[in-house]
């Protein structure tokens, strides 16, 4: 049986276990982007994201018997493996301090990363694109500054648009836990974005009003 786009993940995995290299390649091409982005959004390093992606699929090759289809989809399993790898790497890198990027500009702010740089060329309005890039960088920085257990919820539910149930399956926790963590994470993000918003920002003028909580 040849691997084809119509095959489900589980079928491709079964073919992979049987030794079908095409099935493995098809499975990889289908799932690698999500895993890579997840790792990149979790740790902010392209090198680590690359390593994590490779390790996730190597784990699938070596220990495919660990995947239990009765416990969830293969995509969730892959996200779970990626999450464990990322957390391990973050724990390992915790004792190191990141040096400033070589592309640091004169005013000390890090230059636009590759993530946003590749979209700048396509912009028609340079000023709007600049503002957009700044916004992306700001939010990315705020997401990366979140504690890991909040960050992973934001990445899965907001950036990868997984449902609460799928996120709970990846994280191995209850759906209610996902909800509460996401709520708390969003509150933290709002706080941090307000802190970094420059004064006189017209867009933020309406949202800067912070009265007592409304119980209506």
């Amino acid at each position: 049986m040849r691997a084809s786009p119509e095959h489900s993940d589980e079928e491709l995995l079964r073919l992979t276990v049987a030794g079908d290299a095409d099935a493995f390649a098809a499975l990889y091409r289908r799932r690698q982007a999500g895993i890579y982005r997840f790792a990149l959004q979790m740790c902010g390093s392209e090198g680590i994201a690359e390593d994590v992606t490779q390790e996730v699929f190597m784990t699938l090759v070596r220990e495919s018997q660990l995947f239990d289809p009765t416990r969830g989809a293969l995509a969730s399993y892959l996200y779970g493996v990626a999450r464990n790898q990322v957390l391990r790497r973050l724990e390992k890198e915790r004792h190191f301090v990141a040096l400033a990027d070589e592309e640091t500009t004169e005013d000390g702010r890090a230059g636009a990363s590759n993530v946003s740089a590749h979209t700048a060329d396509a912009a028609d309005d340079p000023l709007a694109e600049l503002a957009r890039s700044e916004l992306i960088e700001t939010v990315r920085g705020a997401v990366l500054a979140l504690p890991a257990h909040y960050r992973e919820v934001v990445v899965l539910c907001e950036l990868h648009e997984l449902s609460y149930a799928e996120a709970a399956s990846v994280l191995g926790c209850a759906v209610g836990t996902v909800r509460s963590r996401l709520h708390r994470a969003r509150a933290l993000l709002v706080e941090r974005l307000r802190e970094v918003r420059p004064h006189g920002d017209a867009r933020g003028a309406a949202t800067d009003f912070d009265p007592l909580r409304c119980f209506a």
Binding site: Q32, L40, E50, H118, R132, R140, V143, E158, R186
Partner: peptide, 23 residues
């Protein structure tokens, strides 16, 4: 505002994938 910003990031990174050497 936060939702818009997060969607912008998601859209911006949608095309990212692992390098070919990984495959």
């Amino acid at each position: 505002h936060l939702t818009t910003a997060l969607r912008t990031i998601a859209t911006d990174m949608a095309d990212l994938s692992a390098p070919a050497r990984v495959e």
